[in-house]
């Protein structure tokens, strides 16, 4: 696997991260070496092995349909970097 310049650009964009050239090169090299190290997993025979998603012993953790929270507009807005009239404010989105 080679984690090249195009890959890091694509991945950084998906993760909404953006670096100057030198940082990008450093991260690229780091990830590339981690991926090379991870290659060893290719040696494990996993035929017929189900992926393990969770080690929690539970299933069906459900709650009943009751309104128990909400109405905290002022607390929400107090935490917001920018807000107006109870709305969160962000740079204008196209479309």
């Amino acid at each position: 696997m080679s984690f090249n310049e195009q890959t890091i650009k694509t991945i950084a964009n998906l993760a909404r991260l953006k670096f100057p050239k030198e940082d990008e090169a450093k991260f690229m090299a780091d990830i590339d070496s981690i991926l090379n190290w991870v290659e060893q997993l290719k040696g494990v025979d996993v035929t017929g092995i189900e992926p393990l998603v969770s080690v929690s012993p539970r299933e069906n953790a459900i709650r009943s349909d009751v309104v128990t929270e909400g109405n905290i507009q002022s607390e929400l807005m107090a935490n917001a970097p920018e807000s107006v009239q109870g709305f969160y404010e962000v740079p204008r989105m196209v479309e």
């Binding site: 993760a15 909404r16 991260l17 953006k18 670096f19 929400l76 935490n79 917001a80 970097p81 920018e82 969160y88 962000v90 740079p91 204008r92 989105m93 196209v94």
Partner: peptide
Amino acid sequence: VRYTERVSGHTLDEMYENTRT
């Protein structure tokens, strides 16, 4: 958007990138 420090940007994506980086 909702908490954390924000580093502004001209577009939403720029704001995301600046803030997160």
